[in-house]
């Protein structure tokens, strides 16, 4: 348990509750999708009193007592909002009795820091694979960790992947896929992977902050899933120098039956290590030559299926 969790006074959310979940449909699909999945997957006694809002629509609505802002930085940079709208948004969030920030960012990065340039949060929900230690400046903020598990609907898909990985995995035509904004590190990764298997998929578009939408030529979640359904290894490196496991990439890979592989020269170890963090492409090549990838997929699916679904896990936090 991170030190920031110890002794924190956590707000209690009685169930069922009135809850507004805010997201932006216009910035990037990752968080929009997370908000939608979470809302759809809430337990039956939560759903009737939880509302899901695309942020411009919420500006005209009467706010609930509790507001869950999914990716505040994305909300504040929604291209459909004027500067004045953002001021109104901030004020309106601040008027709620409980102001909860939900993010899946690595502590220590600019992306994490930007989430705190806004309302006064009363709690933070950190979505990922491992709880993180908050910086000292946020030590008094109540912290709750939400394991990024599949929803109830996705559990059936994952169970199917788990059952068929051994036979399906080797049949996939695309050896690897690297998807993310272009960085020098990712270009170098693709160069190394191309030396190994030239016919992988590399989609490294220019970085256009807050524009990760299909109408800007970015992959939607469904398109990424179609791509990964033909791919053996979904490979990534972090954009930053911190040691952090991107749980959302692992889940996207597994739901499509691909093997998630993060490359990091400092692989995580210990009982909570996901097992798919390898040090470099040379290790991946040796790993790929065995039947270990299909076994890893099966193991990771089992780990995720052993945990409660996303909505139930969220409800249990309160």
């Amino acid at each position: 348990m991170p030190p920031s969790l110890r002794g924190s006074r956590l707000p209690t959310m009685s169930s069922p509750s009135d809850l507004d979940i805010l997201y932006s449909r216009a910035t990037d699909w990752l968080y929009g999708n997370l908000a939608t999945r979470l809302w759809c997957d809430l337990p039956d006694d939560w759903r009737p009193r939880a509302r899901l809002w695309d942020v411009p629509d919420w500006l005209a609505a009467a706010p609930a007592r509790r507001v869950l802002a999914v990716n505040w930085a994305g909300l504040a940079n929604d291209p459909r909002l004027s500067q004045q709208d953002v001021v109104v948004l901030m004020s309106k969030v601040n008027s709620a009795a409980e102001r909860i920030l939900l993010i899946a960012e690595c502590v220590g990065t600019d992306s994490f820091q930007r989430q705190f340039q806004g309302p006064e949060w009363t709690a933070l929900v950190d979505v990922g694979w491992h709880p993180q230690t908050l910086p000292a400046a946020l030590a008094s903020l109540p912290y709750r960790f939400l394991y990024h598990t599949p929803t109830r609907a996705e559990r059936a898909v994952l169970a199917q992947v788990q059952a068929t990985a051994a036979e399906q995995f080797p049949l996939r035509p695309i050896p690897w896929a690297v998807v993310g904004k272009a960085t020098a590190g990712r270009a170098a990764l693709v160069a190394e992977l191309t030396d190994w298997e030239p016919d992988g998929v590399a989609f490294l578009p220019a970085d256009e902050p807050w524009q990760g939408r299909p109408d800007r030529g970015r992959l939607s979640r469904a398109q990424l899933a179609r791509l990964l359904a033909k791919t053996r290894f979904y490979v990534w490196v972090s954009r930053h120098a911190h040691s952090h496991f991107e749980a959302f990439r692992a889940l996207e890979a597994l739901l499509s039956g691909a093997c998630p592989i993060k490359l990091d020269a400092r692989p995580a170890d210990g009982p909570e290590a996901p097992g798919c963090v390898l040090t470099d492409v040379a290790v991946l090549r040796r790993f790929a030559a065995t039947d270990a990838p299909a076994r890893l997929i099966t193991t990771l699916c089992a780990q995720l299926l052993a945990r409660p679904p996303l909505g139930a896990a969220f409800a249990a936090l309160w």
Binding site: A187, V190, A191, L204, P205, R216
Partner: peptide, 28 residues
């Protein structure tokens, strides 16, 4: 498709996304 730019520095990548209207301002 993707082109790797090779030279003295780290590899860079060109022609790396579907064509957007910014091609009117500068070819990429």
């Amino acid at each position: 498709g993707n082109l790797f730019v090779l030279g003295d520095t780290q590899p860079d990548v060109l022609s790396n996304e579907p064509l957007q209207a910014r091609v009117y301002r500068q070819n990429y």
